[in-house]
Each structure stands twice: as structure tokens, then as C-alpha cells.
Amino acid sequence: MPVKNRFAEMQAEITEWRRDIHAHPEILFDTNRTAALVAARLQDFGCDEVVTGIGRTGVVAVIRGKSTGSGRVIGLRADMDALPIHEATGLGYASKTEGAMHACGHDGHTAMLLGAAKYLAETRNFDGTVVVIFQPAEEGGGGGKEMCDDGMMARWGIQEVYGMHNWPGQPVGSFAIRPGAFFAATDTFDITFEGKGGHAAKPHETVDTTVMAAQAVLALQTVASRNADPVDQIVVSVTSFETSSKAFNVIPQKVHLRGTVRTMSHTMRDLAETRIKEVCTGVAATFGGVVAVDYDRGYPVMVNTPEQTAFAAEVARSVSGACAEAPLVMGGEDFAFMLEERPGAYILVGNGDTAMVHHPEYDFNDEAIPAGCSWWAEIVEQRMPVA
């Protein structure tokens, strides 16, 4: 089963939707224009139910098949939000909003799921129910969690859920997936060292927070190199070092560190939090200062369930002829919250030789549209075949 001809016919139309969304990016939960556009399209397609305001600005639509005797209900999810990046593509449909850009391809994800929804509403060639999910605030806002917290899974009886992300550097329209842990948990830390400030020429009269914090930055590297099993994946990165003084001749009273932790298991996540607090407490005590550590758990590890992953890979092979094993990704993905509530799988679709995501010159490759739409549609038709 190659790419569906219907999506080749629809490609220009779907591309037009995608580029309109691209030109009007919206950040986090402020996806009001995009959500309204999505809801209007879904209404036009003749979906059986269209509901807005799930997870603040999310949109959910229901499409029932020719029969629903199987009792199966499958969720398909796309993200809608953009990033706070100034676009540098120079494209004719480039962002019209200063400081906002679809730099991760969520415009493409939304357009592809709309294309699949239109096809599924036209054909209804399945036995069961499809719930299409358009989510805000994937980029750090936890929109997936908010939709789940609004009771989305139970309200529509979703039994399985599937997601997709474009992937630069992978051939256009090809697929890659892996079972189990796939995308990392994304935690952050905020650390404040406090000592005794003073004149830089009299360091003996101070408790030097700059030295204290510098020592902590180095010591925190041992969480990965000396506390974690070498076969486990963990990243501890200090990304900001800020003192309370900008003068050349002042030892600051406080130094503030920020950073991120990426892990692929609950065990490593617990280890990282414990050791960061212990290391910083020990360093502060050694130098005679005090420390406050605020450790915030963000997105959990995104875990593909084995049965659904094998099925998703089989569907991908039916669309493109092959499905590669994807690498572990230390970036985060809040589809993880949906996979904590229901079994399912997340797949990568190739974006070709383009700039990487989150880059100001990135653009979603519209040539991936037929393959992406076909995968969505085949997930439904193969998982819920008409008898």
C-alpha cells in the first residue's frame, strides 16, 4: 500500500493550509487563530463532533466509521504551537509575527492531520471511531498534560493514541521509530549560592560565591560521569551563570545557576535530582556559604508501547516501503503525557536535507505531506478494518 493517491491530489490544498499557519505562528497556549482555523476546517469536513477549549486552546474532533461495531477508538494527535524565534528563511509565506516562528514543523503536523481528517470524514472506510487531537503548547507549556487533565481520554473513550514528528536529515517521506523509551524526560534546575560579598581586593573577608558556583559547575559534571551507570543516558547541563554584581572589583553576594537534566528512566531521573542537591549542598558547606536548589520535573520520558510501535512500523512500511530504527532522542516531547495514559506510538517522518528544527532557517518540507497523511489514514484503516 503506497502513498494514497487521494493525498497526492490533496497536496496543493494541504500545502496551502500549512503555509497559512506558518505565516501566522502562535506560541504556547495563545493558539487562538490556529485553533479556530482547525475547528472550522473540521466542521467543513463533516466531522461528527468538534469541540474547542480542551487543554485551554486545544481542539478535538470525532469521526465515526461506516460501522462502530468493533468498539475501537483511536486518537491521532498533532501539535499546533510555534517557537519564540525570529524567522530567517526569507520565504514568501514567512512569519508575519515578529519574534515568533514555526521552527519545529508543527504547522506541517497540523496540516497533515487535517488532511487525514478530511479523507477519513469523506471515506469512513473503517470500523470504529477516530478522535483527532490538535494540541497547543507542546514547546514547554505541557499542553498535552492539560488536555489529559481535562479528561480527554475518558471523555471520548480513547483506547490508543498515535503521534508524528518531522525529522530533518532523514529522507523525505521515510519513517523511523523505536519501541520503549524514545524521547527524554526534561527537567530543569535553578540554584542560588549565597555567601558574603565584599571588595575583590580583600577576598579573605568574603565568602566567595563565584568560586563556590564555579566549583559546583564542575562538580555537577560528575553526576553523569561518576554517579550514573555508563550504559544509561543522562545529560546534566548548566546553561546560565549569573552573579549579583557586574563590577570588576566586587565579589558578589549571590550567584545564580540554571540548567537542564535529560534522562531516559525514572531511576536516572531520581538519581539526578538527588545528586544535584547533594553536590550543591556539599560545595556550599565546603566554602562556608548556603545554597537553595529548586529542581523542577518537566516532561516525563516518552515511552512507545511495544505492540503499538510494531503496528505503527508495519503501517509505515506499507506507506513508504521501509521503516528504520530511530535513535534515542535527548530532546523532550509532551506526547509523553498521552502515552502515560494510553498505549500508543510516536513516529518520525523524514523532512529531507533541511535546517534542523528550532533553527531560524528551518522550514517544514511540503513534499512529506502525502506520506504523513497516508500514515495517519492507514493507522485507522488497518487498525480498524471494515469486515
Rank of each mutant, 00 (worst) to 15 (best):
K202V: 15
G332I: 00
H266M: 13
A313R: 13
T354I: 06
S374N: 09
A310D: 12
E13C: 03
G180K: 07
E340L: 11
D30V: 06
K145W: 07
M80G: 00
G151R: 08
A61H: 01
R41A: 14
E138S: 03
H165T: 02
G169Q: 07
A310H: 07
E122F: 05
A285P: 05
H256N: 11
K196T: 15
K277P: 00
Q221R: 10
E381V: 14
M268W: 02
C280T: 15
Y162M: 03
V132I: 11
I191Q: 13
A316W: 06
E205F: 12
D79N: 09
F248A: 13
V303S: 04
G65M: 06
D353W: 02
G58M: 00
V130P: 04
A111V: 04
Y362D: 09
A214H: 09
D353G: 07
G197R: 08
G71T: 09
A285F: 11
S320D: 12
F248R: 14
P179W: 08
R262M: 04
P343S: 14
Q43T: 15
V319N: 10
A322T: 15
E307G: 00
M10I: 01
G58N: 03
R178W: 01
F7Y: 09
K118N: 14
Q135K: 00
N5W: 00
E333G: 08
D270L: 13
G75H: 08
D107S: 01
E340N: 00
R269A: 10
A201R: 13
F193V: 07
G65P: 04
Q170I: 14
R258D: 02
V293S: 12
P385N: 01
E367T: 04
F126R: 03
E340W: 11
P2T: 15
G195F: 07
E9N: 06
P179G: 14
R124P: 13
A219K: 09
E307A: 15
L37N: 07
L339H: 05
G71S: 08
M101L: 02
N304W: 02
C323E: 12
T263Y: 09
I251Q: 10
L328A: 12
P343Q: 13
D20T: 07
R64P: 12
W156P: 00
T354H: 05
C323N: 08
H199W: 02
M101T: 06
D363W: 04
F182P: 07
A272D: 03
T286K: 05
G90D: 06
G195C: 05
F45K: 05
L339F: 03
R342H: 04
K202D: 15
F126E: 10
V51G: 06
P136T: 03
M1E: 14
E146T: 14
V250E: 08
H22M: 01
L37T: 15
V38H: 01
E242Y: 14
G282W: 04
I191N: 12
Q382F: 06
T97I: 14
V51W: 10
M384Y: 09
M1H: 15
L42K: 11
V329A: 10
M164H: 06
T267M: 09
R33A: 04
T309F: 01
A154R: 08
G92A: 04
V223A: 10
A216C: 09
S374C: 12
G53A: 13
V73S: 07
A94N: 05
N351S: 12
R383S: 15
F335T: 06
A312H: 03
I14D: 11
V59E: 11
E13A: 00
Q233V: 14
F189R: 13
C148R: 10
D149C: 07
A322W: 02
G198R: 07
E205T: 15
Q233Y: 05
